[in-house]
Structure formats: structure tokens, C-alpha cells
Amino acid sequence: MKIEFKDLTKKFGTFTAVDKLNLSLESGESFGFLGPNGAGKTTTLLTLLGIYQPDSGQILIDGQPVNAGTRRKIGVVAEYQTFYDEMTAREYLDFFGRLYQVADAQNKAKVLLERLQLADWADALIGNFSTGMKKKLGIVRGLIHSPELLILDEPVSGLDPFGIMQVRELIQEQHKLGTTLIISSHVLSEIEKTVSRVGIISKGKLLKEGSIADILGGQKTFSQWQVQFLEFPPNAKAALAAADFTLNIEEMPEQNTYQIQANPGSVEGGALGRFALQHGLITTQLHRQDISLEAAFIKISEESLQNLV
């Protein structure tokens, strides 16, 4: 599904939320929207979904303006999701399956619920679901009709590390099947992991867009992991320092934490957890920060601000 934003402008009164945005996404591409709160990311996506009408410019999906037909091919996972609490997960997915005219919605729902380990709760009332379970259910709903375009707004917020991994794998699978991806997230590492191209948006303007390599330019990149343990293990430093992926390691005993710098993509959260477990260490939290993309984002934003001043 090819998407074109042409001089898209959306105003709310005197406030310009999106300002002459031009962007083109090829079919099957994965694109990340970066930007601080109020930058215009959500407004752009809601205009793409037809919730807002543009004041000027247009959005074309496969050369067509947005309509009910095009929206049928889009899957959406919003950051803050709302559900019919009085329905069970199965009933809820059945409703959306019928709405999107999915032929084998029940089987699809069953497979997706199993993938995200929600199958046991298929007949539970959604009102009783935890935040993470609701997030996963929202993702299943977004995928139930095998969309050609998947829009994800903060797809992993509220999920535990294992859940993040499950969801990321599912999204990547969808992408491999040809689904175009648009991800909007504050978690820059997530963007970096999932998309091939990013756009940085601030104050409604698209400041820069291109491949992650283009955006980074010559900047040195590394991933910074914060690994928290149940109790601080002083003897773990040697084992972690000896690992292939470790570039540097720092101790933070007050927080029962080691801070590890690693090559980007050299290690996943799950692999790091398993590595610690092999060495008899129980992790309570794993947090990754991609220093490179974040730094580039801040730099581009600052430059842009200076230009505006």
C-alpha cells in the first residue's frame, strides 16, 4: 500500500498542528515517526485515517483519497485503547472480524491470541484485563483483518519485556508478509529495531526523513542496556564483561543495576535475560536506550529550533 502526504496542513483554530507535510511511503515499507509530544505525529496519523479532514493538501492511499474502502485495509493500534468492557475477548474480536468482513475471523483470532498468550482468556470479560493484556488484545484487533497498512502508536508501551518481544516478532512477521508499517513512538530503540526509514517531526513540520543511516550520519552508535537484578551481584561483572556483545560495563549498586554498552543489534533483551540466567542471575528489569538515534533526534530538533529562532 503506497501512501503519499502532499502539502498536508491541518489547523485547529490558529494553531497549526501539521504544516505542509510532504512524505511518500512505498508499498511494504516500514516508516517511523519521531517527535516530541504535540509535534503533530498523532494529528498526521488521524488525518490519514480520515478522523480529521485536512485544511489543505491531501493524502493519497494507492493514488486514492482516504475513504471507507481504504480504511478497511488499515490496521490501527492506538496508544490509548478503549474497549467494550462488558464483552469477552472472543466476542470483541468476532465483532471486529464481522465489521472488516474477515472470512475466518474466529480461527485468526484464535491463532493471534495464542501467539500473544491470551488464548486462555478468550472468554474472560475485557473489563477484567490488565493494561498489558488490553494492549495485546488491541494488537490482535489491529491484525485480525490482515491489513495492508499497519499503524502503530506506541505499540509496546505498557508491555513487559517478554510481551515486547512477542509483539515485535509479530509486527516483523507482518512486515515480511508485505504489510506497510508506520510506527510512532517515543521509544527510539523500538523504532530503530522495527523500521527502515524514519521521519523527525516537530511543531508540525517534517524536519528530516530518510534511512536510519542517513539520519545518524557519521555518529557512533551503541545500545545502552540497564540490567536490574533482584539483588546486586558483585561477581556478575566479570561474566557480563566477558560477553561478546559488551563494549563497556558500569556498576550501579544502589539500584542493583549494571549499565552495559553494546553494539546495536548485537543482543536482544530475551538473550540478555537468558545469558544472566545461565550465570545464576535473576533479572527484574531490562531497559535499552539507543544513544545514537536519540542523540541524532535531539541534535536535529535543536538545529531546527535554532533555525526557527
Partner: peptide, 10 residues
């Protein structure tokens, strides 16, 4: 018919 108890958080 439906499961009305809350799942354990975590």
C-alpha cells in the same frame, strides 16, 4: 459462561 475473575497482574 464467561470468565469473570481477574487475571493475575504481571
Amino acid at each position: 459462561k464467561v470468565q469473570t475473575h481477574k487475571p493475575i497482574e504481571g
